[in-house]
Simulated scan of single mutants.
Amino acid sequence: MTTLATPQALHARIRESLRSQILSGHYGQHDKLPSEKQLMESFGVSRITVRHALGALEQEGMIFRIAGKGCYVAKSKPAQTLTRLQGFAEAMHSQGYAACNRVLSLQTLPASETVAQAFGVAVGTPMVELRRLRYLDNLPVSLDISYFTQELGLRLAREDLASRDVFHILENDYGLPLGHADLSIEATLASAEEAQLLDVAPAAPLLALQRMTRGADGAGLELDFIRYRADRFRYQLRVERN
């Protein structure tokens, strides 16, 4: 007895076929994809099935649609290397993306146990918390929550944090050279607040990064808790065998 493929299986097959061709370079950036009619004929499916497949790729950010013209391959997903300590805007500008920030809040709070341990201070020590929503090409890509000592944080409060990277301010304005950062990356699910700010569904997958940046002298400068939209950002790393 022959088992008929479900509509879900059919549009998944189209989606994966197109995704594979995009990732392999068969379709390059800004190349036009086959029309809905061509895909219908190639896969022997209905228009609604094709539109489901294309809609899924559009949600992932792999393609974009121009009304009356069709679907095109989007820019490759922005990436930041793990082998070099860079600010977000610094890394994105080099790839041709326009990055900006929206400052959500900047306030003095008592250090939690995690923050206190990272900076080597007592729990409850006054620290400055900076919350920013970061955008690439006017689309939200990450929610950044950063902590600084009170002295440094109050200095930063006077800066243009909407358009400048903190790293750039520290090194170029304050003469505080960066040394290294310790970081961890894991998968997480969006809370209700994160989902609203990042324009994703509640419990959508996010990339969670925790990073402690220290100066050349080893002093703690910035502790970051960052939530990235997994469909709009990635980290990459080249690993040598020897």
Rank of each mutant, 00 (worst) to 15 (best):
F148G: 04
L139F: 00
A89S: 13
L23T: 00
E16Y: 01
Y174W: 07
D137E: 07
L57C: 08
L133H: 05
G28L: 11
A118M: 09
G215Q: 10
A219D: 08
L39P: 09
A204S: 11
L109N: 04
V239N: 09
F64K: 02
V121E: 10
A190R: 11
L156D: 05
P34C: 05
A204M: 02
K32P: 00
G44P: 10
T81Y: 06
R19T: 01
R132H: 08
R13E: 11
Q8P: 03
L4V: 08
L139D: 11
S17V: 08
L104H: 00
L198E: 00
N138I: 03
T3W: 09
G55R: 09
H180K: 15
K75I: 00
A5L: 14
R65K: 09
F64W: 05
L161A: 02
E90T: 10
L154K: 15
T108F: 14
A98C: 12
Q196C: 02
P140G: 12
T81D: 13
R158V: 05
H30L: 15
V128N: 04
D137R: 05
S191G: 15
A67M: 02
Q59S: 10
V166P: 01
L104D: 00
P34Q: 03
S163M: 03
F64L: 02
D231Y: 10
I48M: 12
A5C: 08
H11L: 05
A111M: 05
L104Q: 01
Q29Y: 07
